[in-house]
């Protein structure tokens, strides 16, 4: 009896803490989801079950338009930041010991987003660039790239440099060694970095808020204007759908990275 009691006493406070933290993290989310099926107009009192807020959402052209803009920005910035970030990570790994340059490469991830946002707004204004989707896209590349660089660089620390030397000794050019040896061996890290870049861009609000054009709001900007106006069950329906998408993405990402974790 004693050992059981002892383990119980050891475990219980930890379980209480975990339970408390997860309650804090999930009660707001579950409340939001429950309210999205609300039959009544009140955003606070749950009465009846209905999908009508989902159908309101599907017919809201602002939301659809915002979603399309967001997908364009996220796809473009993911492709660009994955390419630039991978090249930069490999370059830093091979040639740069300087801690300043290494920090400079990761700095966009640490600079407060509001500072980057107003700075880019000032830059675009100075160059008289009219704001639109591409101004948001370029802004997203700069911080997404830092995350891709960090992820790929972490992976490079564990790769075999002799593979590259062997390839070049056998007469392969630098370019073909890069494309046929380096990139494939980094594929899981590049993919993980790209996924991170995509999700970050999908959710990014502050920088987009400052750099986006008046006629091309991304989805977070549409959401911002909706929540500022007040509480409507339509937002809950949108929130539920977005959460389902990101939860699925997290689970897929978890599945994908699992084998590399076991190595």
């Amino acid at each position: 009896m004693m050992p059981v009691n002892k383990t119980l006493r050891k475990i219980r406070p930890l379980k209480v803490i975990l339970f408390g933290t997860f309650a804090f993290l999930y009660i707001p989310i579950f409340a939001l989801m429950a309210m999205s099926f609300n039959g009544s107009h009140s955003p606070f009192i749950l009465k009846g079950f209905s999908f009508r807020w989902y159908s309101v959402l599907m017919h809201d052209s602002r939301v659809i338009h915002g979603l399309i803009n967001t997908l364009i920005v996220a796809t473009g910035s993911t492709i660009l930041s994955s390419v630039l970030g991978t090249l930069l990570a490999v370059g830093l790994h091979r040639y740069t010991k300087s801690s300043f340059l290494n920090a400079f490469a990761l700095a966009p991830a640490i600079v407060p987003d509001i500072v980057l946002g107003i700075g880019l707004l000032a830059l675009y204004a100075l160059l008289s660039v009219s704001l639109g989707l591409y101004s948001v896209l370029l802004a997203h590349v700069v911080f997404s790239m830092a995350f891709v660089t960090a992820v790929v660089k972490a992976r490079l620390a564990h790769t075999d440099k002799y593979l590259r030397e062997a390839s070049m000794d056998l007469g392969a050019t630098r370019t073909s060694t890069f494309l046929r040896i380096t990139v494939p061996s980094l594929a899981p890290a590049i993919l993980a970095g790209a996924l991170l870049a995509f999700t970050l861009s999908l959710d990014e609000f502050v920088i987009a808020f400052f750099t986006n054009g008046p006629t091309t709001p991304t989805l977070p900007i549409v959401i911002y204007s909706m929540v500022r106006f007040g509480v409507t069950p339509e937002i809950n329906a949108l929130a539920t759908l977005l959460m389902l998408v990101s939860f699925t993405a997290v689970i897929i990402a978890q599945r994908m990275t699992r084998p590399t974790e076991d190595e």
Binding site: P28, I29, A31, F205, I223, V227, V231, S246
Partner: peptide
């Protein structure tokens, strides 16, 4: 998981 949910929506949930 909650972290991959839009920040605005997570903030909004506290209004409710």
């Amino acid at each position: 998981m909650p972290f991959w949910t839009n920040f605005l929506i997570r903030t909004y949930s506290w209004i409710m």
